[in-house]
Design a protein around this nucleic acid. Structure first.
Length: 542
RNA sequence: GCCCCGGUAGCUCAGCUGGAUAGAGCAACAGCCUUCUAAGCUGUGGGCCACAGGUUCGAAUCCUGUCCGGGGUACCA
């Protein structure tokens, strides 16, 4: 049971004694330590209801609270009517035992037990290497999935791609053009083609593998391009520790019968009409500015339709929770997809759409426009090679997903020495070093340590941070914002480094050494667990 | 035009489901290694939380408006 709910219970009990009822109030740790460890505004909230001075109410509640010395050591009231609780050190000291004894509370959540979740992310079509922009989505998606797993969800990481459209045809034509150039034919090269050198590489590979007799329009151009690019994408993702469980292709569910069924269903709700040969989705009747095309006059589905069908498919797979990670370019279209799904009778409350803002790249103070077709981008692989997986991952989640991430390329290269990720990893490496040092001195961990010896400020401070971990995970689940964890690990590392400077672990005092060793081990567990969720390694040495 | 995001220390940003004296890193300056890794720690300086109203006992946080910056906005996906 966590600290907050214990104190909360005491508080609610005393409110009952006083015949006071209140809908909601806040109980949280105040910024200023002089107000104790936990603080509540109940009295302030009640003041209006009861029509009394908040200070008086607070005093009444204070008197009514039963003090349980093993947990609450002191209660006091401060103006304008806050009730503050001081938690006794013995509670915090017990945290070490809980962590060392693998108390579940610190290692997993219950919310998702027995439930399934699907996280869809990246979902870039195989037209070129993944860019830095895709990288942000990849890391956010993977980390969100890990957060769900911590809470017990059975998570499927899914990658959706759609290779039926114009982009893929252009890709094939581009490869074909490069192929014929390579065998010396004079080909008219269009600006519309994909410009990157990887197109030439693919063409050269086709030349090597199939010789110079391949005819124009052969399926091999497109097939090779898709295969090679996809395997490249997979290895790019693998380089930053990401593996999808399912790659779903639109071909599996975009079948004429499916399309017809869906269009008919929407038509029955009077949500479609035909104009200029195209089938339109009447989004204006759902409050949007303009209607959107579902099927182009050419008969080809426009992108909203495959998205709708794909989501129907996911809903049919009966996940308890569906999460889509999209870039800001989807901000206009996803509400249409959701509306369509609702119109089709799906309960969209299990769907959460996370929109992240784009990464703006600057190079030499100039903005770099990112276009796959023009090959103007820094690839995710290039970035990973420059700064390493851990830094890439940390960089992408240390800022909130809905802020624009300004990525300065020079800085990223430069940063390798004073990057915040090293601060976290360094804390872990230091702990490992303490453990090694202890072993050399013949001091190793023993279950019979006495945690009541941990009384210095730096020790209690570290214990308080450790105690926060489950709360942080709960917050992360609610917000699905990986940054929450990154910020927490920063402050955990700060508490540890402070402890490290102020308290020697391996000392002549055997008892004390054992207690501190236990504290340090508990810190190691939580730190590496947190880093693990972020997909960042916990080095033993640095 | 419409939509989304942002405006907090010199720089990069935390804090934003309202709480008491607004935080961290970098940069500047001053200290700390004869005992577990100085990629660390301690201290100093630095702020009208863009602006103006509103709600509230209480606003960086919520609401409205204004200004500035970034991005999105096809019968491309």
């Amino acid at each position: 049971m966590n600290l907050k709910s214990i104190v909360n219970r005491h508080l609610v009990d005393s409110l009952e004694k006083l015949n006071l009822t209140v809908e909601s109030f806040d109980l949280s740790s105040p910024k200023n330590p002089k107000f104790g460890d936990l603080s509540t505004n109940v009295a302030l909230v009640l003041a209006k209801q009861v029509g009394k001075n908040p200070m008086e109410i607070a005093k009444d509640i204070e008197k009514a609270i039963l003090i349980d010395n093993s947990i609450i050591s002191e209660v006091n009231v401060t103006p304008p009517g806050f009730i503050n609780f001081k938690i006794s050190p013995s509670y915090y000291q017990s945290v070490v035992q809980q962590i060392i004894n693998k108390d579940e509370h610190f290692y997993s959540g219950k919310v998702g037990k027995g439930k399934t979740a699907n996280v869809e992310f990246v979902s870039a079509n195989p037209t070129g290497p993944l860019s830095v922009g895709h990288g942000r989505q990849a890391v956010i998606g993977d980390t969100v999935a890990s957060i769900l797993q911590w809470h017990g969800y059975d998570v499927t990481r899914e990658y959706y791609y759609n290779d039926g459209g114009k982009q893929m045809r252009t890709l094939a034509t581009s490869v074909e053009g490069r192929y014929f150039q390579a065998i010396g034919k004079d080909i008219e090269w269009s600006d519309e083609f994909y410009q990157g050198d990887y197109i030439k590489d693919i063409a050269n590979d086709i030349l090597k593998e199939f010789g110079n007799k391949v005819k124009a329009g052969d399926k091999i151009f497109r097939k090779s391009a898709e295969e090679r690019i996809f395997s490249n994408i997979r290895s790019t993702l693998e380089n930053i520790g990401i593996k999808h469980d399912i790659f779903s292709n639109e071909k599996n569910f975009i079948k004429p019968a499916n399309i017809e069924k869906t269009i008919n269903a929407l038509h029955q709700k009077d949500l479609t009409y035909i104009e200029d040969g195209a089938t339109w989705f009447k989004t204006t009747s759902l409050g949007k500015e303009q209607d959107r095309v579902l099927i182009k006059s050419s008969g080809e589905p426009a992108y909203r339709l495959p998205d709708i069908l794909y989501h129907c498919d996911k809903f049919e797979r009966k996940y308890d929770l569906l999460i889509d990670i999209f870039g800001a370019d989807h901000i206009d279209s996803y509400p249409d997809v959701v509306s369509a799904l609702e119109a089709l009778g799906y309960n969209t409350s299990s769907l959460r759409v996370l929109i992240h803002q784009f990464v703006t790249l600057t190079k030499g103070g100039e903005k770099v426009k990112m276009s796959t077709r023009k090959a103007e981008f820094v690839t995710l692989d290039e970035l990973t090679n420059m700064v390493g997986k851990d830094v890439v991952r940390y960089f992408f989640i240390m800022r909130g997903m809905n802020t624009h991430l300004n990525f300065n390329i020079e800085l990223a290269q430069d940063q390798s020495d004073n990057n915040p990720v090293y601060y976290l990893q360094y804390a872990h490496a230091r702990i490992c070093n303490i453990i090694r040092h202890g072993e050399q001195q013949g001091i190793t961990f023993n279950k019979d340590f006495d945690s009541s010896l941990l009384i210095k400020d730096a020790e209690i401070g570290l214990l308080k941070q450790l105690n926060q971990f489950p709360n942080i995970m709960a917050t992360a689940l609610e917000s699905l914002e990986p940054r929450t964890i990154a910020n927490y690990l920063q402050s955990l590392a700060t508490s540890f480094h402070k402890f490290y400077t102020e308290c020697h672990v391996i000392t002549e005092d055997n008892e004390l050494s054992l207690s501190r060793l236990a504290l340090v081990l508990a810190t190691k567990n939580i730190l590496s667990k947190g880093l693990d969720i972020l997909g960042i390694s916990s080095p033993e040495r640095m």
